[in-house]
């Protein structure tokens, strides 16, 4: 099972990783390369910070982070911890998730 984290601002990817209060945590169980089960959950954080987000990543055992703006320090830290980070992504969260699951999402993509 793969877990993906997307910080939210309404229904869009939040402009800033460290300032999002709502976070979409998606669990994906792939049965074949094109089929699988998806379970989505929105977590509301009490405080907004890179640290709070990292605690959530650790507790949820997230492996992939999809976000828009992220500071270099946090980006490097997450990469060193072995996480996949796709940053500088803009668009509605559903479209972004779909694009990721189809293997088409890359850093810097704008899906508006």
């Amino acid at each position: 099972m793969e877990k993906i984290l997307i910080p939210l601002h309404d229904n869009d990817v939040a402009p800033r990783f460290d300032l999002a209060t709502d976070v979409l945590v998606v669990s994906v169980t792939r049965e074949t390369s094109v089929m699988g089960k998806i379970h989505e959950r929105v977590v509301v954080l009490d405080d907004t910070s890179g640290e709070a987000m990292y605690r959530l990543i650790m507790s949820e055992d997230v492996r992939t982070v999809i976000c828009a703006g992220m500071e270099k320090e946090i980006f490097d830290f997450l990469r060193r911890k072995g996480l996949d980070v796709i940053d500088d992504v803009c668009g509605p969260a559903d479209a972004v998730l779909e694009s990721y699951l189809m293997g088409k999402l890359g850093p810097g993509q704008n899906l508006y």
Partner: peptide
């Protein structure tokens, strides 16, 4: 030209927007 038509918070990524 890539950010025209987009809401400003997604282009600027400013703490004030949030």
């Amino acid at each position: 030209r890539n950010v025209l038509g987009m809401r400003c918070l997604h282009a600027l990524r400013c703490d004030f927007c949030m």
